[in-house]
């Protein structure tokens, strides 16, 4: 008798039943999420890196508001990471009801992917930017390398920390601000501008994938002389580590406008359109605007911004993406697309 013939039939049957068991298991746990969701309304907000503290507080505010006006509990799930990376994950099937990303371009990629309906920029006030920010320098106490402006960080021997523009929205704002500074000085000499940003990126010693990663590198791991940071992130670091760092506002920076939008396709699928829209609209309410100010984002409501004039340097000259770079489509194509200026200068 051959052992092979003896075993094959039943072993095969057992193997088959085993694998169908796996399939059943996977199918069983798949709908668990859906079941849990049906009890109370649930909202997923996929956001960028530095907004962790802001949305933790805002979600509490919004839940109370929604409970009061609609009598319904809303559970909000947060996800944070580099803006480009987060946009990518939503495109790949991370089903966010709303996205609150670092830049318009990252939200618009979702429109191009067919997830957000056209015309989203105009659906909310201020081009769907409830709060703005700008780019500043964070240096160590006493400013040992005497960094005052953009040309100081292009000098040899200064270690610069900034995230990767390919995956981080903040990093793109950093890059564009540096470019704008050079462009003003050279009166639009592209070759010289390239040289200038190249000198800065030659000084970059750690290129993290998101703004928060860069902050941790600079603050906790103590790498580098200067961190190119969101203004809100720089203030947050000062709050966490009083006295250890100084904020340097350069002579020229950029008006950074983070964008928010409902991800229409997913919201329709989850039947959360109403709450998703309200969630974003409520960001413009006076309470929410003040909360943003307290978290060091510049409120878009000029009246409320004035209440924070002792916090923010409102005199810094800010270029903006529409007027100075011709909008995000043009800026992306020129600077951050495959083989564009960032790739050219970073190669060597």
């Amino acid at each position: 008798m051959n052992i092979k013939t003896l075993f094959t039939g039943k072993a095969l049957a057992l193997a088959a039943s085993f694998f169908s068991l796996i399939a059943a298991l996977v199918l069983l746990i798949a709908p668990i999420d859906a079941l849990a969701d049906s009890k109370s309304i649930s909202l997923t907000n996929v956001s960028y890196d530095p907004t962790r503290e802001l949305y933790e507080q805002y979600n509490k505010l919004f839940r109370a508001y929604w409970k009061k006006t609609k009598g319904q509990e809303v559970e909000i799930h947060q996800s944070h990471g580099g803006s480009g990376k987060q946009s990518r994950s939503v495109q790949e099937g991370n089903e966010a009801d709303v996205v609150t990303l670092a830049l318009e371009g990252d939200v618009d990629k979702l429109r191009k992917a067919g997830l957000i309906d056209p015309g989203w920029v105009k659906k909310l006030d201020k081009n769907s930017s409830p709060y703005t920010s700008t780019i500043v320098f964070l240096v160590r106490k006493g400013n040992p390398k005497n960094i005052k402006d953009w040309d100081d960080i292009a000098k040899p021997g200064v270690e610069v920390i900034t995230p990767d523009p390919k995956s981080s929205g903040g990093a793109q704002w950093n890059f564009l601000a540096a470019w704008a500074f050079s462009n003003k000085r050279t009166n639009g000499d592209e070759a010289k501008n390239k040289e200038f940003v190249k000198a800065i990126y030659r000084n970059v010693t750690v290129l993290d994938s998101g703004a928060r990663g860069s902050t941790i590198t600079f603050v906790e791991n103590r790498k580098g002389d200067v961190l190119l940071a969101w203004e809100n992130e720089a203030f947050l670091v000062q709050k966490e580590h009083p006295g250890a760092f100084e904020i340097i506002v350069p002579s020229l920076s950029i008006l950074a406008q983070p964008s928010v939008a409902v991800v229409d396709t997913y919201a329709r699928k989850h039947k959360t359109e109403e709450v998703a829209k309200a969630y974003l609209q409520y960001l413009y309410s006076d309470e929410a605007q003040r909360l943003q100010g307290k978290n060091f984002y510049r409120p878009s409501n000029p009246e409320i911004l004035k209440e924070f004039k002792s916090t923010f340097n409102l005199n810094v000259q800010l270029v903006n993406i529409e007027a100075d770079f011709g909008g995000w489509d043009a800026a992306t194509a020129k600077f951050f697309a495959e083989g564009a200026i960032f790739d050219q200068i970073y190669k060597k």
């Binding site: 199918l27 798949a30 668990i32 790949e92 099937g93 991370n94």
Partner: peptide, 23 residues
Amino acid sequence: FGRIGWAYPFLDAWDIKIVFAVP
């Protein structure tokens, strides 16, 4: 299994989520 993956249309039709979920 992602939105750009080849199995997505089938999964979406049955409302099954694999990636970005527990499975």
